[in-house]
Design a protein around this nucleic acid. Structure first.
Lengths: 371, 371
DNA sequence: TTTACCTTCGTTAACGTTTACGGTCCGGCC
DNA sequence: GGCCGGACCGTAAACGTTAACGAAGGTAAA
């Protein structure tokens, strides 16, 4: 590798000035088509790569990104936001400001928050499209205005979004199926609870679960999927109904965060100890259920890492102009009673603000956990 | 948050020049003790944080870090190196060069590689201390010379190392125990194979496995640990012996990468289908064993992420002067036949060089996987 | 007193990119 | 011809930090 190529090298090679080279490379006005192509070709020929430090230092514009998530202390979104913050502080040289826009409930105020972000002129948006169809027009508008949008956890297809960060649905569903089969000795009747088959991720998890169960444990029977539409009462009612119709059910895979109503339904139906539960995510009220082994295992979706990756992709696009990948899929973590404490310690540590851990370097034995 | 504080602000507040401020903040010579403390206090008072872009741009020194790992195409170390490379390209603005020093076998040439790195005057070292005691004096020497050392996978205690990046041993051992108990229905006789109880990580995994098994599945019996000292023939011989002494063995947790000899011993002893295997790591020859369900599950140690984190910690220390954390522990991934394909796809993708995936942005549907 | 040297600190030119400003040239209008 | 406006391009001052150089003051040796 030779010396680094800079703007001046290109300029001298062509007998022009750095200003012209800069305008040509950035498609700014005031440069003839002829010289523009000459500059671009020479840049490619010399292998020019911009010096980001100089770029940061010179441009005083600071990037603004809006993070639109569910309001409140849902542990999932708290950790997503924490991950975004972490990566922002690690990657960036203080010229990015993050604006958080939250909405109270699924689908309520989501579109308004997105529109507000657009109107305020942010440079990029990280969002959770809980109702992809509701955000559709908004996101297409962003796409037309060249505002990059990164989706977290749920994809919004055909909206021109820049990228999506999520847990690999195939790995999740297949792991759940393989575990379920192993736990149950390869036989029995199982069911899947999900939010809605209209959500791509849930449908994919369900498919993966079904096909892996079919191929690895052909003796097991899978019942039809139960849709709860993210409504707790609906989850409870439909579970009760499921247990009534299938008293011989031995396993349930809950792909939504609404596992508590299903557990309560099983408890009320006196079937809790006969059913092997595999759930999704990790939140406080689930902890005692794992400890009591009511839940055999839960599939942790690593919200913190999702947030980190979302910011990372967006930042790289804003800075370099290229997107490292348009679909980032993470491997899920498996949490059982055995390793539960590890994840709880991890969550409690991450709730302490990063700055605090920075300054108290007087206790050098501080342990920090990464997802 | 007010305007950003720069060197000039501190200088003007004290009536000195930026040069003096710079020297005072960096403990350079040529500043009276009096003004040095005044500058440092004022910097803290104003909340000064250096502008890294300006720092990168100004200093033409480029950081050199040496990466000392096992030679050859061990999939584990290949991925560690890939992770280091990835993070180096993502984090840094082209002023870090990485020198790879490899040694052929465990403990052979390890010390020499370390000494060579020290002598060539690198700014930091990432290493895998396979024989911690052999590296002890070298690492203490590095510590005296203020050369930061980051250990990957294995810790080297009491050597003054900057940080260690590894899989959480407690989570690994406990997860293995919980899975083993679940798979075997809470009863049976199990054993653990490890490299040596003298290696901290292996001893910790063994302890975690034992205590979790004891507390969650008190009916199960755990045999004494088998040490193979990283020698394949020893692993085979001792396994044969183990099976002869315990014909009723129903499960083995292999914490080392040497799971193939143990599997072959079980095969030769005609006990393969009676024993539930939980192994460690993921490498090509293990794949068919997982597919055939000879191995029920393997605990993936995420070498790529270990490499990423190691570089990240080292880089942050070299640049900011502070270490984000002195012990980074990762949650292991669980690989079973159901989600095996996900990890294989991930590995194959990561072997393609990063630059290639960058340029072929003509296929925008490229999927990239993160650990 | 001169010379030499050290400590302490100010001055200033880099580093590579961005961007505002000003210059030149050319065509067309009064 | 004088004037105006636009297209195209060069110039130079930022951005904040680093580090080499030099100046001022003092101390000690010649």
């Amino acid at each position: 590798m030779n010396r680094k190529i800079k703007l001046l090298d290109i300029a001298e090679a062509l007998g022009v000035s750095t200003g012209t080279v800069h305008r040509a490379l950035h498609n700014h006005s005031g440069v003839s088509p002829m010289t523009k192509t000459r500059v671009q070709q020479m840049a490619k020929h010399l292998g020019y790569r911009p010096n980001l430090a100089a770029r940061y230092l010179s441009s005083k514009r600071n990037l603004r990104v809006s993070v639109n998530t569910l309001h409140g202390t849902t542990s999932f979104w708290d950790e997503v936001r924490a991950g975004i913050n972490e990566e922002a502080h690690a990657l960036v040289m203080e010229n990015v400001e993050i604006e958080y826009r939250t909405y109270p409930r699924l689908g309520e105020g989501e579109e308004e928050a997105f529109a507000a972000a657009l109107k305020s002129g942010v440079d990029g948006i990280i969002t959770f499209p809980s109702r992809p169809q509701a955000l559709h027009s908004c996101m297409r508008r962003a796409s037309r205005n060249n505002i990059p949008v990164v989706c977290v956890a749920t994809d919004a297809p055909n909206t021109g979004r820049l990228a999506v960060v999520s847990i690999d649905t195939l790995a999740s569903g297949s792991l759940a199926a393989d575990l379920m089969g192993s736990f149950l000795g390869g036989k029995g009747k199982v069911a899947v609870t999900l939010s809605s088959l209209a959500i791509t991720e849930h449908a994919e998890k369900h498919n993966a679960f079904a096909s892996t169960l079919q191929s690895l444990y052909p003796q097991m029977q899978l019942q039809e999927a139960v849709e709860d539409h993210d409504i707790e009462s609906e989850a409870y009612e439909k579970s009760i109904d499921l247990f009534r119709r299938h008293p011989d059910l031995t396993g349930i895979y809950v792909t939504t965060e609404a596992s508590i109503p299903v557990l309560n339904a099983a408890r009320d139906a006196k079937m809790l100890d006969r059913i092997t539960f595999i759930t999704t995510d990790l939140f406080p009220s689930l902890v005692p259920e794992i400890r009591s082994r009511a839940v055999a295992a839960t599939i942790y979706q690593r919200p913190r890492t999702q947030g980190r990756m979302a910011f990372r992709v967006l930042h790289e696009f804003l800075v370099e102009g290229e997107c490292p990948s348009f679909q980032v899929t993470l491997a899920p973590h498996l949490v059982m009673r055995g390793n539960l404490d590890f994840f709880l310690k991890r969550q409690s540590l991450e709730s302490t603000p990063k700055l605090a851990t920075r300054q108290q370097s007087t206790s050098p034995e501080l342990v920090e956990y990464f997802g």
